[in-house]
């Protein structure tokens, strides 16, 4: 291993591009990220605060429908995330710790919601729970509202964010391996003790990483929720839907309101990103530690490569 590094260092000159080429490419890349990503993010805040702080706060807090949309998002997202955490942990335990027929198929099924357009996801829920849907007559008889109500919003959001936690946990648990859990069980720990004292501490950063990504998507979901909500102000408009509603009204003060609400969502995205960067470092450490303890006496380089490829 160190040999190849030495060789790389000796011959690195042939891989280095001409400084002019290098700087031109760097400037181009920064320009692309600047125009596509940085300018839009700054523009959200610039437009949100264009009429001053007081307008910003009144457009956020004085409008009852906007206030309700924030509350609704704060109800829907945690429920969806919690459901997907339970599912994600169960799926990762089954897939990463056992071999059984249909295991690959199960992994593909978990990824499926990522391949389905959010609008189609919403449509699927309408087909089952809508008034003309398969369960529609039964639901009406029992006076249960799913579509154009909170349960529909939760269902749609949960569907769209289903893969996040499981996808994050499966590779982490596979990399850590079952040795510690097997040891715990053979020392007499029961299932709950093994999970709580051995598995959970091992996967906690990976789990949190999945939760952060899942939550960001849950709070920002638009297409699926748009279809099932009916967009009733003060009732089924989540934050992203409210942003669109204010935008469609096309009055200048509403544009400010739209951008004010959008600035909160942008802030959420920036916090998510910061959390993601620090958690990535932590999960790398988690995996490196696991790799180091697994291969006793291995050089630290091995741990490093396992960590970075994850």
């Amino acid at each position: 291993m160190p040999d190849s590094q030495l060789i790389a260092a000796r011959h690195v000159s042939t891989r280095v591009d001409h400084p002019a080429v290098r700087w031109m490419l760097i400037v181009l890349a920064v320009l692309v990220v600047g125009v596509l990503i940085i300018v839009p993010v700054i523009n959200v805040f610039a437009q949100a605060f264009s009429a001053g702080w007081t307008t910003y706060w009144t457009s956020l807090l004085a409008d009852a429908d906007t206030r309700h949309s924030i509350l609704l998002t704060l109800i829907v997202a945690p429920i969806s995330v919690a459901a997907n955490v339970v599912f994600g942990v169960a799926a990762a335990w089954a897939i990463a710790r056992f071999r059984f027929p249909g295991r690959t198929l199960l992994t593909t099924l978990i990824d499926l919601p990522f391949a389905i357009s959010p609008v189609v996801a919403g449509l699927l829920i309408v087909l089952i729970f809508g008034l003309q849907g398969y369960l529609g007559p039964w639901l009406r008889e029992h006076d249960i509202k799913v579509i154009f109500a909170l349960p529909g919003l939760i269902l749609a959001t949960t569907f769209v964010t289903l893969p996040f936690v499981a996808r994050e946990l499966i590779p982490v648990m596979e990399a850590i391996g079952p040795e510690e859990e097997v040891a715990a069980v053979s020392l007499g720990a029961n299932a709950w003790q093994t999970f709580w004292h051995v598995t959970l501490p091992n996967i906690k950063w990976g789990l949190l990483y999945g939760v952060v990504l899942c939550n960001a998507r849950a709070m920002g979901e638009f297409g699926a929720v748009y279809v099932v909500s009916g967009r009733i102000d003060g009732l089924t408009c989540t934050m992203p839907l409210r942003v669109e509603k204010l935008f469609q009204q096309l009055r200048h003060d509403d544009m400010a309101g739209s951008f004010a609400l959008a600035s909160i969502l942008t802030l959420l995205a920036l916090v998510t990103l910061a959390a993601k960067v620090s958690l990535e470092r932590k999960t790398r450490g988690e995996l490196a530690e696991a790799a180091a303890t697994k291969i006793v006496g291995a050089e630290p380089l091995v741990a490093e490569t396992v960590g970075t490829s994850a």
Binding site: A29, V30, V33, I37, I38, V39, P40, V41, N43, V44, Q47, L213, A216, M219, G220, E221, F222, G223, M239, P240, L241, V243, E244, F247, M255, S258, F259, A262, L265, T266, L268, A269, L270, T272, L273, K276, V277
Partner: peptide, 28 residues
């Protein structure tokens, strides 16, 4: 300089709600 910041900024389209992206792009 700023390479790591650039690297993490690339993920913004994953994290930013699509409605916000649409709103900003429609006015830029």
């Amino acid at each position: 300089p700023g390479k790591r910041i650039l690297d993490s900024l690339v993920d913004i389209p994953f994290a930013l709600p699509t409605a916000v992206a649409g709103l900003v792009y429609s006015s830029l």
